[in-house]
């Protein structure tokens, strides 16, 4: 694990936003640890996780900030939007109110990130088909979206990967300027800030991936 300083060539910063209880933290844990937490308390402020993925043969490290959906954290969480390359905007397909609030989440995301930030819509809890409150067709009209389940893991990978592919594409075609201060993308930084072997616990930040 202490091998080379880097085993990836890009770092993308992501944020996960949306109403409380839609499953943002569960999505993060499912993506970084392939685990589902059935009884997950509300996030305090923000959580952080990382995972290395591959897009077009390039290793990319995703640094993911999972924000608290509760209103009283709004000031806290807003400061994490800055410099995000990707924003996963999540609602719960079994609760229409979480879908109705998307426009305000989208406004925040648009105002607080840069124009190139890739915003991806996710309808979570697709395993609860019987309780569905928002149809796929309806959501599809609002934006390009992906339905997934943090519980079964269905489509969770795709949500994170498709966002990365889009960001990578923006880099390739030059629409995302890597030198811009808040692009949310780093290209293989010169010196590691946290040497990989300082943290021995195999936590999601330990980057054992």
């Amino acid at each position: 694990m202490a091998a080379g300083p880097y085993n990836y060539s890009y770092i993308f910063k992501y944020i996960i936003i949306g109403d409380m209880g839609v499953g943002k933290s569960c999505l993060l844990h499912q993506f970084t640890e392939k685990k589902f937490m059935a009884d997950c308390p509300h996030t305090i402020g923000v959580e952080f996780g990382t995972r290395i993925i591959e897009v077009s043969g390039q290793k990319i490290k995703l640094q993911i900030w999972d924000t608290a959906g509760q209103e009283r954290f709004r000031a806290v969480t807003r400061s994490y939007y800055r410099g995000a390359a990707g924003a996963l905007m999540v609602y719960d397909i079994t609760r229409r109110s979480t879908y109705n609030h998307l426009s305000s989440w989208l406004t925040d995301a648009r105002n607080l990130t840069n124009p190139n930030t890739v915003i991806f819509l996710i309808g979570n809890k697709s395993d609860l088909e019987a309780q569905r409150d928002v149809t796929y067709e309806e959501a599809k009209q609002f934006a390009d979206e992906n339905e997934c389940s943090a519980k079964t893991g269905d489509n969770v990978e795709d949500a994170f990967l498709d966002t990365a592919k889009k960001i990578y594409q923006n880099i390739q075609d030059g629409s995302l300027d890597l030198n811009a201060a808040e692009s949310g993308v780093q290209h293989k930084p010169a010196t590691p800030r946290n040497p990989l072997n300082t943290d021995q616990t195999p936590s999601k930040e330990g980057c054992a991936c």
């Binding site: 952080f48 640094q63 000031a75 400061s79 800055r82 946290n194 936590s203 930040e205």
Partner: peptide, 18 residues
């Protein structure tokens, strides 16, 4: 956890809320 502990506030945020 390291990342959360070492997370530094943006000076402009600090100023704003102060």
């Amino acid at each position: 956890m390291e990342r959360i502990i070492n997370d530094i506030v943006e000076p402009e945020d600090l100023k704003k809320y102060e």
